[in-house]
Amino acid sequence: MEQQEEDEQLPPTLRSIHNRHSSFVKFINTTRHNIGVYWIDYQGKMVCYRVLGCRDHVEINTFVTHPWIFVDEETKDRFPGNGEEVFFPEPWFAKYRGMRPFELPARIERTPVYITLPLYSLRDLCLREIKRRLRYDWQAFDLEIPWSLQHELHVLQPRKPEQRDRDLGS
């Protein structure tokens, strides 16, 4: 019982921590999907800053310890930013370390962050296709496949409402 209470009081693993070092980024959607740009706030909640259309971009002033994720607005799939599932900015001065004063640019340049398509294994693609064919998440347990795959399908995004929720019109 005490362990459960302690777990409920722990902060989320992925969250913003502090705002000591600034970072200036430019998020660039290189895909044909509408991508939501989400900041993970201090409580671990996703905050949508903007939805980027195909080839769109947004310039954001952020901080080093602030995580960002990118989500397809239709499928809810996560897309990588600069190859990372969760993007953590570098401090603005990192790229200027070791430069002599006369080598510094007249203006601070934003760090480009390229949002790209995720790479899925054949196994992942198959699970996603099976999930699309299920009407409810719990139907994964009716399939004649190993329990581990049933469970994986059950929790795979996007989540589908329970049957009782659909019957109530929720």
Rank of each mutant, 00 (worst) to 15 (best):
I40H: 08
F87T: 11
F70H: 03
R159M: 06
Q163H: 06
E5R: 08
C48Y: 12
P101S: 07
V71A: 10
P105A: 07
E85I: 00
E109A: 13
E90G: 12
P12M: 04
T13K: 06
R166M: 04
I130Y: 01
T75A: 12
L122K: 15
V64H: 12
D77M: 15
A140S: 05
F24M: 10
Q9F: 06
F102A: 09
R55N: 14
F24L: 07
V155C: 00
Q163E: 07
R164C: 00
W39N: 12
H154K: 04
V25H: 02
G83L: 04
G98Q: 09
R32L: 14
F88N: 03
D165P: 01
W138K: 06
M46L: 13
E74H: 13
P67A: 09
V58L: 12
P67L: 09
S121E: 11
E90F: 12
L14S: 03
W147V: 08
C126Y: 12
R159I: 05
K95S: 15
Q163D: 04
E2D: 10
L168F: 00
M99D: 05
V25Y: 03
N34H: 15
V51I: 15
F24P: 05
P80L: 11
Y136A: 00
V51P: 01
W138E: 05
P158E: 01
S121A: 13
P146E: 09
Q163A: 05
F93C: 14
F63S: 06
H151G: 01
P12Y: 03
F70W: 04
S121M: 07
D72L: 07
V47C: 10
M46A: 14
R135C: 02
Q43M: 12
L104F: 04
L153I: 08
R15P: 02
H33W: 14
I35F: 14
E144H: 09
N29S: 13
K26I: 01
T65W: 06
P146K: 06
P80N: 09
Y120G: 06
Y96Q: 05
R123V: 15
I17N: 00
A140H: 03
D7N: 11
P101A: 06
T62V: 04
T30L: 14
G44V: 09
I145M: 01
D124Y: 03
L125H: 07
Y49S: 05
E144M: 11
R97E: 15
